[in-house]
């Protein structure tokens, strides 16, 4: 008996250690790009990941973010486009370090040009006054994951995907040791509902959910810049396992109204599989394009919500013969239950 207990105790510790070893080895085998230390490293880092699954990246956590009470901002990029990943970003720094955000130029991020965003992102990672107090993280949500979540039998809306990502990133920041005091979130949908939900999950933080939070709160603006720059780079380095040799200027912004995107969608249809998985199949733009040009495809129906009445019908006693008196035979139950039927035409 005592042997049993020993065996149960030890492997637990061992598996935890093994997990850590594996992680380190993986990082090494990925090559040199396990850390994003500047804008230049961002593209190669994203390119080294499987673009059909999600990727989470955390910057180094400055020691002050563990010691001092911090504010944390959450924002997203690439929610509307029919192409490419949606990226969730967080940024955090001590409440008293707000000036660093302002010095970086983290103001209304929608007003910033792509070049300006790239510069700020580079500064966050390279400038000593910034990287000594600001940490950030992104989750790159693959278009493949967006489609398969929204097309599950129990549908998972884009809002749910979004909230889960935001909540996951905040949890991860807590696990990394960030001393969070205040959380600012750019809203998806009505702010009140979202705020209640977050407050229940994180009762220990002061949570503010607001529309256009990225223009009001510099920390949200920083999160927004990290998300947007990551989304832009993810598109730039996109590799098609489908073998298409296309660059990001061949598929455009991804917004359904963009003529380049429209042309990309109409010219890259596979009759059977539809689109390459850069495309979000769950967008009506994509569905409509396929309805016109690809083979029709019918799936196993999702489980219907209302179970139909399954008991015997009263009229069943009158069945069994056709009008001219011919007796119809029920197929044998054994075969019926196994979905077996005779087939003469194929």
């Amino acid at each position: 008996m005592s042997d049993d207990i020993k065996i149960k105790d030890e492997p637990l510790n061992e598996t935890i250690e093994n997990g850590e070893h594996e992680e380190k080895e993986n990082n090494e085998s990925d090559g040199l790009i396990d850390k994003i230390t500047s804008l230049k490293k961002l593209g190669p880092f994203i390119a080294s990941k499987d673009n059909s699954t999600n990727t989470v990246y955390f910057s180094d956590i400055p020691q002050v973010c563990k010691d001092e009470p911090c504010m944390l901002g959450v924002d997203e990029a690439g929610r509307g486009p029919v192409l490419g990943p949606m990226v969730y970003g967080i940024a955090f720094c001590p409440i008293k370090s707000k000036q660093a955000l302002i010095d970086l130029g983290c103001a209304d991020s929608k007003q910033l040009t792509e070049e300006k965003r790239d510069i700020i992102f580079d500064d966050i990672n390279t400038k000593e006054y910034a990287n000594s107090c600001i940490g950030w993280a992104v989750e790159i949500i693959s278009p493949n994951v967006i489609s398969t979540s929204m097309f599950r039998r129990a549908k998972c809306s884009l809002n749910e995907v979004s909230m889960n990502s935001a909540i996951g990133l905040i949890h991860a920041a807590v696990d990394e040791g960030v001393n969070i005091a205040e959380v600012y979130v750019d809203t998806v949908g009505p702010p009140e509902k979202y705020q209640d939900k977050l407050q229940k999950i994180f009762p220990q933080f002061k949570i503010t959910v607001a529309k256009k939070a990225d223009s009001t709160y510099p920390i949200v603006s920083a999160a927004s810049i990290c998300a947007k720059v990551s989304r832009d780079h993810a598109l730039k380095v996109w590799q098609f396992p489908e073998g298409l040799k296309l660059k990001s200027n061949d598929f455009g912004s991804g917004y359904p109204g963009d003529p380049v995107t429209k042309r990309f969608l109409s010219e890259n249809i596979d009759l059977v599989f539809g689109f390459p998985r850069l495309v979000r199949f769950s967008w009506s733009t994509a569905e409509n394009a396929l309805a016109d040009k690809a083979y029709d495809m019918e799936f196993d129906e999702p489980d219907s919500e209302k179970p139909k009445y399954a008991g015997p019908k009263l009229t069943k006693f009158f069945k069994g013969t056709t009008k001219d008196g011919e007796v119809k035979r029920e197929p044998c139950r054994l075969l019926k239950e196994r979905f077996l039927d005779s087939c003469v035409d194929f």
Binding site: E242, D270, L271, V272, F273, Y295, D296, M297, E298, F299, D300
Partner: peptide, 11 residues
């Protein structure tokens, strides 16, 4: 688990 209404080569 789908009925594809077409015949031909597939990638």
């Amino acid at each position: 688990p789908a009925n594809i209404k077409g015949n031909g080569e597939a990638n």
